[in-house]
């Protein structure tokens, strides 16, 4: 990291506790984390380690028990629900494992949705949606509803939708979890290209070490805490990284 690098995400002393008394579970137990703009960070860890919870908190989908989250300079703790919603709308893009497309809308309409919600002119929104679909390689499937698309195509639609507002931060929660390996590789290549070509900041949760190895940095969580951080920009080979990850997990 250089002095010129800006933080896309800053997390300070983040905790999240579910339940009370005997049912109390500490999902996140005090995390400090920064992600610079244009960085691709992968989060790994066993089930129940808090990966998804961390992603949800940084995405403003859930409220922390304590600590601060700052995305693009906006401190979530100072924002009301409407302001937080505006951050989600304009500065954060989401890609989910289950795609989460609106089944009654076509691919193009799904992609245009965040723009329409933002009050953009309909024609302009659709123009931009078509362009976003093109970037993910879906030029001729825009008029199809999700049920008519393959899993890989649906995830590309979701990816297009997350990018259509040119967000500062892209959050991907196991984006290849529901896909076969060939399609997963295509999606991962797309994500990688976004970082390389457009300086897109990505925070991705994954179980797949091979996919995590395509990131710039890997954070490993266990019991709601960061137990290891590895930078992949130090010239180590992917095989070395994978071997390290397997031993860490």
């Amino acid at each position: 990291m250089t002095e010129n690098d800006k933080f896309a995400v800053e997390v300070h002393g983040l905790t999240k506790v579910f339940g009370t008394g005997e049912t109390r579970v500490e999902a996140i137990g005090g995390i400090d984390l920064t992600i610079t703009e244009g960085e691709f960070v992968a989060v790994m860890g066993p089930s129940g380690s808090g990966k998804s919870t961390l992603l949800h908190l940084i995405g403003g989908l859930d409220e922390p028990t304590s600590g601060r989250i700052i995305v693009g300079g906006d401190d979530f703790s100072t924002l009301d629900d409407d302001a937080l919603t505006m951050i989600r709308r304009r500065r954060i893009g989401f890609v989910f494992q289950a795609f989460n497309l609106i089944t009654v809308l076509t691919a193009e309409e799904n992609v245009a949705l965040p723009l329409v919600l933002d009050g953009m002119d309909e024609i302009e929104a659709h123009k931009r949606a078509t362009a976003a679909l093109k970037r993910t390689g879906l030029t001729d499937r825009g008029s199809h509803v999700p049920a008519e698309l393959s899993g890989g195509e649906q995830q590309r639609v979701a990816l297009s939708r997350s990018l259509v507002n040119e967000p500062l931060l892209l959050l991907a929660d196991e984006p290849t979890g529901n896909l076969d390996s060939a399609t997963s590789d295509q999606i991962m290549s797309l994500l990688r290209r976004l970082v390389d070509d457009q300086d897109q900041t990505i925070l991705m949760v994954t179980h797949n070490a091979r996919h995590a190895a395509m990131a710039d940095r890997i954070i490993t969580l266990r019991d709601g805490r960061i137990v290891e951080q590895q930078s992949l920009k130090n010239g180590r080979s992917a095989d070395q990284v994978l071997a390290d990850l397997e031993s860490a997990l």
Binding site: D82, R88, I102, L117
Partner: peptide
């Protein structure tokens, strides 16, 4: 999903 995509309450 609508809420996640930025639909205000």
């Amino acid at each position: 999903i609508l809420r996640a995509l930025g639909t205000k309450r």
